[in-house]
Amino acid sequence: MGARIAARARQLIGVQDLHALDSSVPDDCTGLVRLAYEGAGINLMDGSGVSHGDNGVMILYRRARSLGALHTRPKPGDIVFFRETYDRNRDGLRNDGLTHVGIVEQVTPGGELTIVHRGSKGVARTHMNLKRPTVHREKHSADVVNDYLRRASGEQRAYLTGELFAGFASPEPWARVARRARPLR
């Protein structure tokens, strides 16, 4: 199932406008995750977990927590959560909580992750290594270890994916709920 979700996310790389594919999902990071999961028959927004003022990322996180889907060992198809990727409330502080999600596409034995996400330039890949969260590039090869996920602004420096990482959620608990919710034939 995770491989199918990761493959669907991979198919969306390069898409600039998610509404062109499905007008029922938002044209943001949560829309990408929802489309990838819907390809596996999972409706991520089915159920409770909404509190006043929550953004879509928080809704997904609360639902993942309620289903017992949160964990720390990534696999392809997992949702990856990030915090403080932008100044959501525009107060100049890093106090915005969970603000971004993506789909784990690949995990290497060395701990490098490739993630598919919907950023400001459309659906793209990004890199993250939680063993080296503060390293942007390899010194000897210039290969990217962690991509930048939050731009520098004002007095604040830019931040890397590994620095803003907040957790993973696996698809299996959502799939179990989806199977139970289907009517018997």
Rank of each mutant, 00 (worst) to 15 (best):
D27G: 09
D27S: 11
D27K: 01
D27A: 07
C29W: 11
L32H: 07
V33T: 14
R34I: 13
R34S: 14
A36H: 00
E38R: 15
E38F: 01
E38D: 11
A40L: 09
G41Q: 14
G41K: 11
I42T: 02
N43W: 11
M45D: 14
M45E: 13
M45W: 11
G47S: 08
S48F: 07
G49I: 06
G49H: 08
G49Q: 09
V50D: 12
S51E: 15
S51M: 06
S51A: 15
H52T: 15
H52V: 14
D54T: 04
N55Y: 06
N55H: 13
G56M: 09
G56W: 12
V57D: 04
M58W: 13
Y61H: 15
R62I: 10
R62T: 14
R63V: 05
R63I: 06
A64H: 09
A64M: 02
L67S: 03
L67I: 03
L67A: 02
G68V: 08
G68S: 02
G68A: 02
G68L: 07
G68C: 10
A69H: 04
A69L: 00
L70G: 09
L70M: 12
L70A: 10
L70Y: 07
H71K: 13
T72N: 03
R73Q: 13
P74H: 04
K75G: 09
P76I: 05
G77I: 10
D78V: 06
V80P: 02
F81M: 01
F81T: 12
F81E: 09
F82C: 10
R83I: 07
R83F: 05
E84C: 03
T85E: 06
T85C: 12
Y86V: 03
Y86R: 06
D87S: 05
D87M: 06
D87K: 01
R88W: 10
R88G: 07
R88H: 07
R90I: 08
D91T: 09
G92P: 08
L93Q: 15
R94T: 11
N95M: 00
D96E: 03
D96Y: 07
G97T: 10
L98W: 05
T99S: 11
T99W: 00
H100S: 01
G102C: 04
I103T: 08
V104F: 00
E105H: 08
E105C: 06
Q106K: 15
Q106A: 14
V107E: 09
V107R: 05
P109C: 01
P109E: 05
G110M: 00
G111P: 04
G111E: 09
E112S: 13
E112V: 00
L113S: 10
T114C: 01
T114H: 01
I115A: 00
I115Y: 00
V116G: 00
H117V: 01
H117F: 06
H117R: 10
S120H: 12
K121N: 12
V123L: 04
A124V: 02
R125C: 08
H127G: 10
M128H: 08
M128T: 07
N129E: 01
N129W: 07
N129V: 03
R132K: 12
R132A: 15
P133A: 08
H136G: 11
H136C: 13
R137Y: 09
H140I: 03
S141F: 08
N146V: 09
D147A: 15
D147T: 14
Y148R: 14
L149W: 14
L149S: 13
L149V: 15
